[in-house]
Design a protein around this nucleic acid. Structure first.
Length: 364
DNA sequence: TTAGGGATATTG
DNA sequence: CAATATCCCTAA
């Protein structure tokens, strides 16, 4: 794949960064893989990055009353580049972590729509009719082609009869509707599979909930997004991404998949793929084309917990010692018994976690 | 449920 | 970039 044009890289980053449910690791990967993007052209991007830093700072537990969380949050806000993203009211919250969290939530909610969303709206959403009306012949041809080819590709993948694809003349009346139509159908199909299979989408939500009621102590995690902010948002220019290597994301993935036939199609869902979806249950495809809507951006982020993504939990000394003791007493392999024997030590560890941990403790 | 192979994140 | 730690998938 040719390297992404800078303008497109910008669209991708601006869109992704503003989605709170996308983990910082994923965003960091994008930053590294895409052409350099200056955040200065987009208030949304600047703000999203700043909010991510705040999220990281606020992600710790403040139950210990140490004020650690608040201190970290203030550090982030002390950065003039971050502070500039917010009208004074965010900085005004001096020592109320809960209030600060609420304000951060609100700021996330009020993030302006990304250019990508606006663009999509122009092509396939409520703005589609205008776009079509204003398009010249060439543009209309392109729009129509986009719809048809997308439909064919998806239908082919689903093994359905391509002749059932929406008619071309329909597309001539309303731009790109065939694409949207089939896109919707494919998406519903995807969701159905997920639902019957593993329900990854809802798992993601359980994760959110779990993290809300059970904040993990994380002393180091604040660093990553903070780095993003200080280098990408505040210090200006493009140093944040200047040392990146383009197009390096893929190679590692393939090495573990020995060449067992043709390359997997791009349409194939990676089993490990995670779905970040819009609102559930839009059955937009029944509506007349001009009434279809993309979900609007204010409602986009469902339950907006702080730190919505799963974090790695380091094993504590107590856990390690207890694990060894358990293995002594119950024997290696009886992870279930051990877990039951020390319920509070291993409350947030699965038997698989324990097995894995013991395995890699034994490796030295 | 468990073992083992891998993917992914973190650290050196 | 290699080594390590944690987490995830899947066969049995």
């Amino acid at each position: 794949m040719p390297p992404l044009a800078a303008a497109d890289a910008f669209r991708v980053l601006e869109f992704v960064a503003g989605n709170r449910r996308v983990p910082h690791s994923l965003l960091a990967g994008l930053l590294a893989a895409l052409p350099p993007v200056s955040p200065h052209t987009s208030p949304r991007l600047r703000k999203a990055i700043a909010l991510r830093a705040l999220d990281a700072a606020l992600s710790g537990s403040d139950a210990d009353g140490s004020g650690e969380v608040l201190r970290k949050a203030r550090d982030v806000l002390a950065d003039p580049g971050v502070a500039a993203c917010f009208p004074d009211h965010l900085a005004v919250v001096r020592d109320d972590v809960a209030a600060l969290r609420r304000l951060v939530d609100a700021e996330w909610e009020s993030l302006p729509p990304s250019e990508l969303e606006l663009e999509a709206d122009r092509i396939a959403g409520a703005g589609a009719l205008d776009t079509w009306a204003n398009a010249d012949q060439d543009t209309r041809k392109k729009l129509r082609r986009l719809g048809e080819s997308t439909a064919r590709e998806i239908l082919g993948k689903l093994g359905q009869d391509p002749s059932k694809a929406p008619q071309v003349d329909e597309a001539a009346n309303a731009p790109s509707t065939s694409g949207v139509n089939e896109g919707d159908r494919a998406q519903q199909d995807d969701e159905a599979h997920l639902g019957m299979g593993k329900g990854e989408a809802s798992l993601a939500q359980e994760d959110c909930a779990r993290h809300q009621q059970e904040p993990v102590e994380r002393t180091t995690d604040a660093r990553i997004p903070e780095k993003l902010v200080t280098s990408a948002a505040t210090k200006g220019k493009e140093q944040a991404t200047s040392s990146h290597v383009t197009g390096q994301a893929a190679p590692d993935h393939n090495k573990s998949h020995p060449v067992t036939g043709p390359k997997p199609s791009l349409m194939e869902r990676k089993p490990s793929a995670i779905v970040y979806q819009w609102d559930s249950g839009d059955s937009d495809s029944e509506r007349p084309p001009h009434q279809r809507r993309l979900p609007n951006y204010e409602r986009r982020m469902r339950p907006p917990p702080a730190v919505p993504y799963k974090t790695r939990k380091k094993w504590t000394e107590i856990q390690e010692r207890t694990l060894i003791e358990g293995v002594d007493k119950y024997g290696k392999g009886n992870w279930k018994d051990i877990k039951i024997a020390y319920p509070d030590v291993f409350q947030d560890r699965s038997t698989v976690d324990m097995k894995d941990k013991f395995r890699n403790m034994g490796r030295h």
